[in-house]
Computed example of a mutant assay.
Amino acid sequence: MIPVLHTEHLTMRAPRWDDFEAYAAFRGSDRAKLLGGPFTRAQAFNQLAEIIGHWTLRGYGRWMVADHKTDEPLGIVGLYYPEDWPEPEIAWSVFENAEGRGVAYEAALAARDYAYNTLGWTTAISLIEPANERSVALGRRMGCTDGETYQHETLGLMHIWRHPSPEDLA
């Protein structure tokens, strides 16, 4: 049910059990602070299961991003719309081994293309915690504009970065 996407350097695929150690390490680290963490291994397991379940409930979701040559897990990127979100989002989180390699950018572009050209979305946002400088820079690089905010009940104030529409990208 989860489609596989291929980019120049990446494979975007369904999460698997052998991805769990990398995922749990990320969710348990200080890198997850801006996402509400760090989290326990049990919480990370539930979160990974949620990623898979999102596909069933919404018909889209986030992919495990892996190196296309080695299949090493590099992060989670894709389409996200939980019940307490203002709009569907293009979301990204990369693991430490992928930082600074352009992985989030390449995968987020593929996810946006899928949202617009396969699902027919006409708009998309990315919710970014203002202190997350790398995500702010990625939002800018993707052509997003900042100007709206959203107050999440547990994550606090987040900025809404609006992606260019399909027409603006054409």
Rank of each mutant, 00 (worst) to 15 (best):
Val136Tyr: 08
Arg41Pro: 09
Leu79Gly: 07
Leu127Glu: 10
Asn46Gln: 06
Thr70Ile: 01
Phe39Gly: 07
Glu96Val: 06
Ser93Ile: 04
Ala108Thr: 09
Ile90Ala: 14
Glu96Gly: 05
Gly100Lys: 09
Gly36Val: 15
Tyr23Phe: 15
Ala49Glu: 13
Trp92Leu: 05
Trp55Asp: 06
Asp67Gln: 03
His9Lys: 05
Ala104Trp: 11
Leu127Pro: 13
Trp63Arg: 00
Asp19Phe: 00
His54Arg: 12
Leu10Ser: 01
Gly28His: 12
Gly102His: 10
Glu21Asp: 15
Trp121Leu: 00
Ile90Leu: 14
Tyr114Leu: 15
Ala111Ser: 15
Thr11Pro: 00
Thr40Ser: 15
Ser29Met: 10
Arg134His: 12
His54Ser: 11
Met12His: 01
Trp92Met: 09
Arg58Ile: 13
Glu89Met: 14
Glu21Phe: 03
Glu129Cys: 07
Asp67Pro: 05
Asp113Leu: 12
Leu35Arg: 14
Pro38Trp: 08
Arg62Cys: 07
Ile125Ser: 10
Val94Ala: 04
Phe20Met: 01
Asp71Tyr: 00
Trp17Glu: 13
Glu72Cys: 03
Thr122Pro: 01
Thr11Arg: 00
Glu96Ser: 05
His9Val: 01
Phe45Gln: 12
Ala44Thr: 13
Asp67Glu: 02
Leu57Val: 15
His68Tyr: 03
Leu79Cys: 14
Val94Cys: 02
Ile52Val: 14
Gly28Thr: 08
Asp30Thr: 03
Val94Lys: 04
Ser29Lys: 03
Arg101Asp: 09
Thr7Lys: 05
Ala111Arg: 11
Arg112Gln: 14
Trp17Val: 11
Pro86Cys: 03
Trp85Lys: 02
Gly100Trp: 07
Ala14Arg: 13
Gly59His: 12
Tyr105Asp: 05
Ala42His: 11
Ala44Gly: 12
Trp85His: 01
Arg58Cys: 14
Pro38Tyr: 08
Val103Asp: 09
Ile51Trp: 07
Phe20Pro: 01
Gly75Lys: 07
Gly61Leu: 01
Trp121Asp: 00
His68Asn: 07
Thr11Ile: 00
Val136Gln: 08
Trp92Pro: 03
Asn132Ile: 11
Glu133Cys: 08
Ala131Trp: 07
Ala107Phe: 13
Trp17Ser: 07
Ala108Met: 09
Glu129Pro: 04
Tyr23Glu: 07
Ala91Asn: 09
Ile90Pro: 07
Asn46Arg: 10
Ser135Ile: 14
Arg31Phe: 12
